[in-house]
Design a protein around this nucleic acid. Structure first.
Lengths: 172, 172
DNA sequence: ACCTGAACACCGTTCAAGT
DNA sequence: ACCTGAACACCGTTCAAGT
């Protein structure tokens, strides 16, 4: 699975092929069907592997710091794996790995004072913004923008989300 | 090009093949190379066609109404074309069609009182949020959420973005 | 249990050839 | 100008067979 991810990193998503993965493992393509559920299963596995790259941040940090660390890890993962990263939008965030990340955001929102009833919606909104930005960068929508500009954009988005969370907490 | 889009709508992105498009036109696959720059050119053309589905809203409306109409059109387009829509994050928003849409957002932001220097960044942030949500829905990340819930989420996001724009205008 | 050979239906793309 | 036939290298997948 990590060989498959490396292959996609090096040669792009269209190189992520049963034949190429098998070759990398020194085996025939047919042998892979023992271990993954076809091409779709291969892609699922690679995306799941990606999710392990943004583990819950240390609980010792303040809630805004935790959210910033998490967002930074997500963006860094997108930079490392531009071919595969956009696929995170394709799977419902139901896998154990995805749940773990989401729970850590829930905890941060509760620490911020967000009321139980609104935590889930606010998490979706915050995650959508962060993932939307990271996927845009990975997929190439911001190809013509400088790294400096994109860092500023990402910072502005984090500031916006923080203000939004604080306001949501104040008006409960 | 519109035949290609219809094919992807009906059978998914993996059915969007030179052979299948050619078949639909009653022609051999090789004939397509006269009209598009290979498979990549075919995809570019389909995405460009998608962009024509969210034209600038009527200038008679207030700026928040215009942004809401535009966002609604974008989301509706994502619902209509779930297979292809995620590809909008893959092309730099440089095409004439994309420029037209962006300019209409610029005008709305200026009408809101956003200072010239901050218009571009705020447009990227707003577009990223709206596209991120629409792509998430189209690609299936929200597969397990009800339409009612997603409508509420989208509404909350629009409200957040509006407040953000107003605050950005106030603090210039 | 795990892997392979052979086979099938399907890709994208090129190039010379036809009209 | 526009389309086609033949060809090439490459896909994903199944299934019976091997060890």
């Amino acid at each position: 699975m990590s060989g498959a991810l490396a292959l996609a990193d090096e040669e792009g998503l269209e190189a992520l092929t049963m034949a190429r993965v098998a070759e990398r493992l020194g085996v025939t393509p047919m042998a892979l069907y023992r271990h993954v559920a076809g091409k779709a299963g291969l892609l699922d596995g690679v995306v799941e592997l990606l999710l392990t790259e943004f583990p819950p941040p240390p609980e010792a940090l303040s809630w805004p710091e935790r959210l910033n660390v998490l967002a930074g890890n997500i963006r860094a993962s997108a930079h490392r794996h531009p071919a595969v990263f956009p696929l995170v939008l394709h799977l419902p965030a139901n896998t154990p790995e995805a749940r773990r990340t989401r729970e850590s955001v829930y905890r941060a929102l509760k620490d911020a004072g967000v009321t139980e009833a609104r935590v889930a919606q606010i998490e979706r909104l915050v995650s959508t913004a962060v993932l939307g930005f990271a996927v845009s960068e990975a997929a190439g929508r911001f190809r013509h923008h400088s790294r400096h500009e994109l860092d500023a954009d990402f910072g502005a988005m984090q500031a916006l989300l923080r203000r939004f969370i604080e306001q949501s907490a104040a008006s409960n």
